[in-house]
């Protein structure tokens, strides 16, 4: 038994841990908790308990390039952006979802909103765009997941193309695969569902997590689906067969955010106790842990590679946005 234990402890060391350094911190980026981040090629959009969205440039001096005032009167809790940085979608505490476009004038402008019919139980909650920004998934309190075709706008009204029904438990998290083929949703009762957007069918109802699923993410090639939340474990599933292939343990609090790196090699996670972890997908072990405070890190996202290795951005209750990059030669 002793041998087994020491053998297991040995493994992460042999896998060579990685080192990440803080490159920049924007203090007081928002006057209150930052709940959401959405990186594009050049910028990071952030949303908080205040009504404005902020856009910071992230390739040079991290300057504030734009503030979208009054974006969500009650505050913003989710954000998603297309990879090319032309479309972004934000969800607010009032249950409303707003659309933003980056136009020729190089500024973000409001382009309407998605609204559920009045009287429908449950606000829209989590949102996710496909890589090209054409397909949007949004969960609702009643457990349903709505899909919109963002390219079809008629008189400011976006076209809802599909609605997936689940067992009625609050849809706390959602992800659309980069190519738009799949949607995954995580629910308050631990439910985790995988849908095929082409056929409009549920592919799998994935077991394994019995507590709220606060975050879901697809790997770039759609091979893996990661899901996590109050069970403090990151569950990895094979997208094609729905089998659970791994459990990543190491977080000691609720997991709030997951994101795969562009190559699919690394998985980034953040938790309620202020920890950020990076997991190697080949070895399935944690290669780096960061935690400067014990305040919740609501969101952690990879940034596009810029020649000098992987970089990511984190934000949370401490109201600042921090940028990290891989230590060279590490």
């Amino acid at each position: 038994m002793c041998f087994a234990a020491s053998f297991q402890l040995d493994r992460p060391l042999r896998c060579a841990s990685k080192q990440y350094l803080t490159t920049h911190t924007i203090d007081n980026a928002h006057p209150t908790d930052i709940f959401a981040l959405a990186p594009t090629q050049t910028s990071v959009l952030s949303g908080s308990g205040a009504s404005s969205l902020a856009i910071h440039e992230c390739t040079g001096d991290f300057a504030l390039t734009q503030t979208l005032t009054g974006a969500h009167k009650l505050g913003t809790h989710h954000l998603t952006a297309a990879a090319d940085g032309t479309v972004a979608v934000s969800a607010g505490f009032g249950g409303e979802v707003n659309v933003w476009v980056f136009d020729e004038s190089q500024t973000w402008k409001s382009k309407g909103s998605l609204t559920e019919g009045k009287g429908k139980v449950g606000e829209l909650w989590a949102v996710s765009l496909s890589e090209n920004g054409q397909l949007l998934a949004a969960t609702a309190y009643d457990g349903s997941i709505s899909m919109w075709d963002m390219s079809k706008v008629q008189e400011g009204v976006y076209t809802k193309i599909r609605e997936y029904e689940t067992k009625g438990s609050f849809g706390m998290s959602v992800a659309v695969s980069r190519d738009g083929r799949f949607t995954a949703s995580g629910h308050e009762n631990g439910g985790l569902y995988l849908f095929n957007n082409e056929s409009g069918r549920m592919l799998h109802s994935l077991p394994g997590l019995i507590k709220p699923v606060r975050t879901v993410a697809f790997s770039p090639e759609n091979t893996l689906l990661a899901a996590a939340g109050d069970s403090m474990v990151i569950a990895l599933y094979d997208v094609s067969c729905g089998e659970q292939v791994a459990n990543l343990t190491g977080h000691n609090s609720w997991i709030m955010s997951l994101d795969f790196s562009s190559t699919g090699e690394w998985l980034l996670s953040s938790s309620y106790d202020g920890k950020v972890k990076i997991w190697g997908m080949e070895t399935r072990v944690c290669v780096a842990t960061h935690g400067e405070s014990d305040k919740p890190v609501w969101c952690a996202k990879w940034l596009p590679r810029l020649g000098r290795g992987e970089q990511f951005v984190v934000a949370g209750e401490n109201q600042s946005i921090s940028f990290y990059r891989e230590a060279s030669g590490g």
Binding site: P31, T32, D33, F35, S51, L74, F93, E188, P212, W254
Partner: peptide
Amino acid sequence: FCQGGSEPEWRRELQKMLMLN
């Protein structure tokens, strides 16, 4: 509880409550 209201801490706690559910 509103933006710019007299109790920003109450607003934060209420938002966090919704966030954590």
